[in-house]
Each structure stands twice: as structure tokens, then as C-alpha cells.
Amino acid sequence: MRLGLHLMDFTWPGGPSALAPTLDRILRDAEAAGLHSFWPMDHFFQIGVVGPPEQPMPEVYATLAWAAARTTNLQLGALVTGVHYRHPGVLVKSVTTLDVLSGGRAWLGIGAGWNEEESRGLGIPFPPLAERFERLDETLQIARRMFDGDSSPFEGRHYTLERPLNEPSPVRRPPVMVGGSGEQKTMRLVAKYADACNLFEWRQEPEGLKRKLDVLRRRCDEVGRPYDDVVRTTTGRLRDLDLDAARRRLDQLAEWGVDLALLTPPSPLPDGVFEYVAELVRHAAPLGRPSPALLG
């Protein structure tokens, strides 16, 4: 099993001028600890479970491009882009450019989106949930075509692309991760289109995560896709840095079939947090099934 870094809180000492050097140190420490990937949130305002909307929230694709220039091995993705934020053709071009300039380290993380407050605040159209899922379905189809070099016209209910040209093409076809735990729409889209799913640990009851993965298995069966083709990822908080408890948690995730666990550290970062993370990386490495190829 592999481990990644998920950042939600950028409220660090020193204000805006300190954000870049602080993030630079975090990324260097994360890479030295052996983490697989870096996943900042794709939000424009801070979300309520972390703090007030006025807290700092850098735009995610500028952040990932900046991070690509300062790292060598970390894979890079947004956790996750709301489908209504960006036109799909532009989004695919952004992720492809990130992939090319990072040497093949980009992922497309995407979901139906939910934060109406930031959308209204910035004047971003916020369709009803049913329409956002329709747009997500079409966007996943468009991403598959464009990543694979298919520039034939696409005409859907919400998007029409006369020539979805995508040059330069990706160094590596960016894996597509769909975030969300909805059993009807989200899980069906994962089974039909995605390379990976993402589930939030703290939104599940103790056995809830396993149940969600069982649902995903059924959705894969329904579309005739092998369940093991889907990379299973989770996101969860590092709380009190209890090493034994964290090891037991990773053991349980691996038993349930999780391939990549994204860790959200406390903020501000405690002293020694990446030495602690390095211990978890070493513990997780032999757990679970052999690492799927797209994890690198």
C-alpha cells in the first residue's frame, strides 16, 4: 500500500509571502519521507470543516504546476476538482500540460462538486446536483478521448466539442480518480470510466468504508469490469500522531483492499511529523495487494 499527502489548511505563520517557502519545505520533506503523491484541495474558499471561508486557499492547478517544478517523484493531483468549475476541454488541457511538464506525474481528480458558497461568491454557475452528475459523466467521456488522442467531435447534452485536440499529448495517460461515496451515481461512474475511486474515511462508520467498497465491487460486476482494475484510495486525518494506532488503521485499510491512503496532517504541522510519516510509509509498503502499475 502507498501513502500520499492531502493538504487542506494553508493558514501558516508569515502570511502570503511565507506560503511558498513553507510549502516548498513541506514538499521536500514529503518526498524525502517516501510519500507517493501530493493532493491539495480544489477549492477557492476554505471549507467549513477546516475554518472560515476567508482563510487562504491557493488555486489548485497553479499550485500543482509550482509543485511539479520543486519535486522529482511525487505524483500530483487535485482532491478533487468540482466538475462545474472548468470547461472539460480546458481542464483536460491543464492536466495534460501538468503531466508533460512534470514528466508523467499528473492525475485527474474529479467529482460532482458541492460547495455552493464559493461558486456563488465567484460567479461560477452551480447547476442542480442531477445536472452536475450529467456533466460529470460527459466530462469523463471527454477526458478519456482527449487523453487517448481522439480528437473526433463530441456532442453531449451539456458539452459540444467540435475538435477536442490535445497536443502535446500526455507523457503518461493521467489516471482518472473520481471522488465521492454515492452508491448509485458516483460508484457507477467509477466502475464505468475511472481508474481510481476516493472515499473519505471520516465520513464512514467503522465498517462503512468496507461496505462502500463492496458496493463498488457490485457496480463493477454490473458493467463487466474486473473490480481489481480500480485503484482504491481513501483520505483520512492524522490526528494525535499515535504510531501504533496509525499502523493498526493502515493494516485495516489494507485488509479491506485500499491501495493508496491519503493522509491529512494537523495544521500547523507538528515538529517531527514527516519522520512519523516516514515510519508509516515503511509500515505500509508490504501491505495489501501488489502495487497497481498506475501508482508507479
Rank of each mutant, 00 (worst) to 15 (best):
G4H: 07
H6Y: 15
P13V: 01
P13D: 03
S17E: 14
T22F: 15
L23M: 15
R25Q: 12
L27V: 10
A32T: 13
A33P: 04
H36V: 07
H36W: 10
S37I: 00
P40T: 08
D42R: 08
D42W: 05
E54G: 11
P56H: 05
M57N: 06
E59S: 12
E59H: 13
Y61Q: 10
A62G: 03
A69C: 13
R70A: 08
R70C: 08
T71I: 04
A78T: 00
V80G: 01
T81A: 10
V83M: 05
V83A: 06
H84A: 14
R86I: 15
K93D: 01
S94L: 13
S94I: 11
S94G: 09
V100R: 07
L101K: 07
S102T: 05
R105P: 05
L108W: 02
I110F: 11
G113P: 03
N115K: 09
E118K: 08
S119T: 14
P127M: 10
L129A: 15
A130Q: 13
A130P: 04
A130C: 06
D137N: 14
I142M: 02
A143V: 00
R144K: 09
R145A: 04
R145V: 00
D148T: 12
S151N: 12
S151I: 03
R157G: 10
Y159G: 00
P170V: 06
V171T: 15
P175S: 04
G179K: 02
G180M: 07
G182F: 07
G182M: 05
G182K: 04
E183H: 10
Q184H: 11
K185W: 01
K185Y: 00
M187W: 12
A191H: 01
K192V: 06
Y193M: 04
Y193G: 02
D195V: 15
A196Q: 00
F200S: 15
F200M: 15
E201M: 10
Q204A: 11
G208W: 06
L209A: 07
R219F: 08
C220D: 02
V223R: 09
R232S: 01
T233L: 00
T235G: 14
L238V: 12
D240A: 10
L241T: 10
L243W: 11
A245T: 09
A245C: 06
R248N: 14
R249G: 14
R249Y: 13
L262P: 02
L263H: 06
L263A: 08
P265K: 01
P268F: 01
L269C: 09
V273Q: 00
E275A: 09
E275Q: 08
V277W: 02
H283D: 07
P286L: 03
R289K: 12
S291R: 11
A293T: 08
